[in-house]
Design a protein around this nucleic acid. Structure first.
Length: 571
DNA sequence: TGTGTCTGCCCC
DNA sequence: ATTCTGC
DNA sequence: GCAGAATGGGCAGACACA
């Protein structure tokens, strides 16, 4: 036994070297090779941890543990260790674009007066993360800073770089679950599909890696179990109905509810509910638990659905914000339950009475759902569905969904199994095309990672005709190609009025056309409104800020949203 | 005790 | 969530 | 087409601090 102990120790510097190699390798196949070789030589005892750390994760999704360290506490920690003030760290970050690189640089400059640093092992780093996560209650932030500071003090600049990135969940080495999954398959000579399936069910890449090392049989032992959440199936965005129907032929169409995903597990009287990211949200949703108990007519099931807040007076779905008020609530749950009642619609099933149903095709699964669920009207039921290959019928259903105030429709391949993630040919979502506003860029923040050196996010303003001011309506950061980012940065640089950390204030001159799904009331922006899912569709070089959209127009568009929904109701 | 800030593989 | 990019 | 990365609004909870 004694001899083995020496073997299972892996220095963290070894992992850091691998991180570095991966960061500077662009080929995915090469990355997979590197990871695969590394996994092969990783002792079984730490294979779990190492596989997780390779994806940049510390804890699995379903674990209750969270680090509870974000940028602010991290900068305090780096400051504590290096003596560089947080404000200066932010300035360096604005220039450098990566907190890991900033930390590495600062530490390299620092005189190494600790001569006898401990050499960190992978396990020590992981144990430190656990300690940080476990600190809670009064004084816990100080503790977290202390533990992390200890860790960083014992780390080389390179090691610190990756520790710091992991803390913020920004490993940025071009490796995540997908490549590690492929590497596991390669390392232990198992088909990727099998590894993927196991991962979908275990939700822990480390557990999968360990099982794979023990062979195909061990992997196949990972099965669906009630109260162990499964990675949900996701949809792709489709350009239009026609496109999807042409590909799928006959397909199922369902209403796309603007709510939150719920995965409901039941065994006997016990029910648990998991969110899309597999968080246990049972406590916040006692009404769903109650309804599920009433509506589910099988002893043991795992089902997938969407819960949505419906205005009982009008029968219309309420703003998504209302759902957020309840979804992860811990206090006054009962009080909010009456104010914001939920309706839940089930659209898939993964497990019934000891049997996996994920390999059945969707048509068969829908049948199972209908057998298992006896709807409780207006509370708990199956997603409204039609099956058709006819475009007009599909179109009619789409408008039916919109008229009821929903987001759009889902179109599903009747032959597809239940598989995690979003893939072509399985499940599509269709939403109306967005409206746009011409807004003025009034500020920006310096980008990070692949946006280092460019302005990466842009504050938007609407024109106030009376005062001539530009009132903030939020920010936008997507829809821009790298070329456009470069272009925007160079045209905005001369307009910079002042900078602080990553934030930049700009003379309001440049106009940008921004698409969005919805205008929301906002407590966070001075205009009182914000855009949901904003993205740039065009840089309006042809427009001056005086020609930008006004606050009045914004408000009338917002009101139109509400009235058009009301109109739809009247139909 | 009230308020402000930070955090979340959060929800979308 | 949306979008872009390299493989 | 997949996988990864860089970003959006907004909510409650948790903690710090006055």
């Amino acid at each position: 036994m004694g001899g083995l102990i020496a073997q299972i120790i892996m220095k963290y510097s070894k992992l850091a070297d691998v991180y570095e190699k991966l960061e500077f390798t662009s080929s995915k196949l090469e990355k997979t090779d590197i990871i695969s070789e590394f996994l092969k030589e990783t002792p079984e005892d730490i294979l779990k941890i190492v596989s997780m750390l390779l994806t940049g994760q510390v804890f699995p999704e379903w674990a209750e543990l969270e680090l509870g360290v974000g940028p602010s506490l991290l900068y305090d920690t780096i400051s504590f260790v290096t003596g560089v003030k947080p404000a200066e760290i932010k300035n360096l970050l604005a220039k450098e674009g990566d907190i890991g690189n900033v930390t590495e640089k600062i530490l390299k400059k620092k005189v190494q007066h600790i001569l006898f640093k401990k050499e960190l092992t992978v396990e020590q780093v992981y144990t430190s993360f656990e300690r940080i996560a476990r600190a809670y209650g009064s004084g816990s932030q100080n503790k977290k800073v202390k533990y992390l500071a200890e860790l960083l003090s014992n780390a080389s600049p390179k090691e610190a770089k990756y520790i710091v990135r992991i803390v913020l969940g920004e490993l940025r080495i071009g490796v995540a679950e997908g490549l590690v999954r492929n590497a596991i398959a390669k390392a232990f000579n198992i088909e990727v599909n099998l590894v993927e399936r196991a991962f979908m069910l275990a939700n822990h890449i480390g557990i999968v890696a360990k099982a794979a090392k023990n062979g195909k049989d061990a992997l196949e032992k990972i099965r669906i179990k009630v109260f162990i959440p499964i990675r949900p199936m996701l949809a792709q965005i489709a350009p239009d109905i026609q496109h999807v129907l042409k590909e799928l032929g006959e397909a199922a169409m369902e209403i796309k509810y603007d709510g939150a995903r719920v995965q409901i597990h039941k065994k006997g009287d016990e029910i648990k509910i998991y969110s899309r990211r597999l968080e246990n949200v049972t406590e916040a949703l006692p009404d769903i638990v109650k309804m599920a108990r009433e509506a589910i007519k099988a002893d043991e099931v795992i089902i997938d659905g969407e819960t949505v807040a419906i205005d009982t007076a009008t029968g219309k779905p309420r703003a998504f914000q209302e759902i957020l008020k309840r979804f992860r609530r811990k206090h006054n749950i009962a009080g909010m339950l009456e104010k914001i009642p939920f309706e839940t619609y089930i659209f898939d099933v993964m497990f019934v009475n000891g049997k996996e149903t994920i390999d059945m095709n969707f048509r068969e699964r829908r049948q199972v759902i209908e057998e298992v669920i006896k709807p409780v009207k207006g509370k708990f039921g199956t997603a409204e569905q039609i099956i058709t290959s006819d475009f007009d019928e599909a179109e009619k259903f789409y408008h039916h969904a919109l008229n009821k105030g929903h987001e759009g429709i889902m179109i599903k391949n009747l032959k597809a199994p239940y598989i995690p993630g979003a893939r072509v040919g399985y499940m599509y979502k269709i939403k109306p095309t967005m409206e746009t506003l011409d807004l003025v860029v009034i500020g920006a923040t310096w980008g990070t990672g692949k946006r280092s050196g460019w302005l990466g996010s842009y504050f938007l303003g609407v024109r106030d005709e009376i005062t001539g001011e530009f009132l903030p309506v939020g920010r936008v950061a997507t829809g821009l190609s790298e070329e456009q980012l470069k272009e925007l940065t160079s045209s905005l640089k001369p307009l910079i009025e002042y900078e602080e950390g990553q934030k930049v204030t700009l003379k309001p001159m440049l106009v940008v056309e921004v698409a969005y799904q919805e205008i929301q009331r906002s407590p966070n922006y001075k205009s009182g409104y914000a855009l949901r899912f904003p993205r740039v569709v065009r840089i309006r070089d042809d427009k001056s800020s005086r020609e930008a959209d006004t606050k009045d127009r914004l408000i009338s568009l917002y009101n139109l949203q509400a009235t058009s929904e009301k109109k739809k109701l009247d139909l």
